[in-house]
Structure formats: C-alpha cells, structure tokens
C-alpha cells in the first residue's frame, strides 16, 4: 500500500515537474529556432564538460548562466571566445553561424534567472523563500 502510494505521488510530482513547476520562464527565455540550434551545438561540442549553467556542469571553466548579459562581457565577448578560444580554452573550430546560434542560446539562458545567488533572505530553518526577482 505504502509502495503504491509513493509511486502514485511520484507520477503526480513528475506531471507537475514536466508542466506547471517549470513553465514560469519569460518569453525571452524560451528557445526559438536559432537558440534551439545553439542548444544542440552546446551538446555536440560537449561544452558542459568544462562549463556550467546554474552551477551544473564541469568546473574547468566558468559558469555561463549570465555571460551574455553580464556587465563587461555580453554577446560580443561570448562570440569572440567561442570562435577563438582563450589561453585555457581550445579553439574548437566553431563556424560563424554556429557561434551566432550558441550566443542566441546563451542569451536565452541568461533570461531565465540569475546565478550565482548573492542576496537571499534566509529563514531560521535554512531555506530561502526567494531566489530570483519573479519569486522563484
């Protein structure tokens, strides 16, 4: 009985996770054609081996969640590094069109929220009620 109750709750939670619990992103954060292509390229070049979004990924390189909107960085900065690499990041042979798609993807990711979190309101039991400006 307990087993089947847990499984039923799991199915219910999965349903919410696939829909309402993750549907609050802004329109700018939804991936359109070019950003979708960028998302595919991000996987094809295995960027996640070194980089993170929201702290999730490899730790060789920096987190890229807000790289496309960060003061002093932005789309041009991201595009230059994608195309030419750095002292530590190899030149991957990305084409101009692919770089544009990857930058579009990074811009969409940046519109989803902020990372790292630096200002939160902590509760006495160790949680934080709000992380992002929209209350999520």
């Amino acid at each position: 009985m307990i087993f089947f109750t847990l499984v039923a709750l799991f199915v219910l939670q999965s349903g919410f996770t696939y829909t309402s619990a993750t549907d609050g992103v802004k329109a700018a954060a939804m991936l359109d054609g070019r950003a979708r292509e960028g998302e595919r390229l991000y996987r094809e070049y295995n960027c996640t081996a070194c980089h993170q979004f929201y702290g999730l990924g490899g730790y060789m390189g920096p987190d890229l969640t807000n790289v496309a909107t960060q003061p002093g960085k932005g789309p041009g900065f991201a595009r230059a590094i994608i195309l030419h690499g750095t002292q530590r990041m190899p030149r991957l042979g990305v084409t101009e069109a692919e770089a544009d798609a990857l930058v579009a993807y990074l811009q969409a990711v940046a519109a989803t929220g902020t990372y790292p979190i630096r200002h939160v309101e902590l509760t006495p039991w160790g949680t934080y009620p709000e992380l992002h400006r929209d209350g999520r």
Binding site: S14, V25, T112
Partner: peptide, 15 residues
Amino acid sequence: HFSSNMVRELTVQWK
C-alpha cells in the same frame, strides 16, 4: 516540450 524550455530541461535532467 522539454528542449524549448531550458529551466524545464535542466530540472527534468537532474530529476
């Protein structure tokens, strides 16, 4: 449905 929403994709991936 999942890949067009980065937050959903990331959440479901780690779920």
